[in-house]
Amino acid sequence: MANGNALLDARDVTIRFGGLTAVSHFNLGIQPHELVGLIGPNGAGKTTVFNMLTGVYKPTEGQIFVGGVSTHDFKPYQITALGMARTFQNIRLFKELSVLDNVKIGGHIHYKYSAAAAVLKTNRFHEAEEAAEHDAIELLKIFGLENRAGYYAKNLPYGDQRRLEIARALSAQPKLLLLDEPAAGLNDRETRDLLQTIRDIHKRFDIAILVIEHNMELVMELCERIVVLNFGKTIAQGTPGQVRENPVVIEAYLGEPAEAAGI
C-alpha cells in the first residue's frame, strides 16, 4: 500500500514515447505542507512528470498514489478530485472567459449541481453560486486581481495571466499544488512578487507545493527539498544546500550557460 499519510507517492514511474524514455524510475513522496522543487535542464522530463501525476499521460511502468489512492485507472478530472491541482507551463487559461469565471471553473468540483437545478434556479443553485462567487473574489484579492474580475482572461498582462492560473488552480482547494514554471517570462520584480505570493498561499491554505522552475535562485530560496532530473533520470535529491554542492548536478548544468543555470 501507499506510504502512510503521503499526499503523493510516485513509485518507480517510467514513461516511454516510442523509443524515447522520457522519464525513468522516478520516485517522489510528498508529505502535507512540504515545498518541493523539481529542476533540471530543458527536456529533462519535468513537465512529463507533471503530466503523469495529473493523469494526462499514463506511466508505462510504475505506480502513482494520490492521498493513498492508486491513480492508475483515473482520468485527470478524477485525480483533481483527490486533492491535486496544477498550472501549465504554456498558460492554458480559458481565454475568452472572464477572470472571475476562470476562477469559478477552477472550483468546479466544489460548486457543481445538476442541470435541472441550474434551469430551475433551486436553493442549491443559489447557495452554490453565492459560495463560488464569494470564494472566487477572495482568491482574486490574494492575487490582486479583484479589480479586473470582469476582464477577459486574454486581456490580462502576461504576468497576471500566470497569477490567474495559480488562482484558478487554488480554487479547486487542492492539498497539493503543482506549479509548472510559474516564473517563466516574468521580470525580476514580478518574480519577487510571485515568490512572496507562493509563500503566502503555502501558509494560508496549508498546502503542499511541487514547483518546476528554471529560475534557480527562486527554487533555492523557496523549497525545502529539491529533486533534480536529467534525461529523465533523478540525478540528485536533497536540501537546496546539498543540491547546490552536488558535483553531478553542477556537471548536468554545465551543458547550459552557467548564468542561465544560476550556479
Binding site: 495529473t54 485527470p76 478530472y77 483533481t80 480559458f94 475568452e96
Partner: peptide, 16 residues
C-alpha cells in the same frame, strides 16, 4: 464553456 475553451485545462480543473 471550459470544454470549448481548453479541454486539457478543463479536465485539470476537475471537469469530466
Amino acid at each position: 464553456l471550459a470544454v470549448r475553451e481548453d479541454q486539457v485545462a478543463a479536465e485539470a480543473m476537475g471537469i469530466d
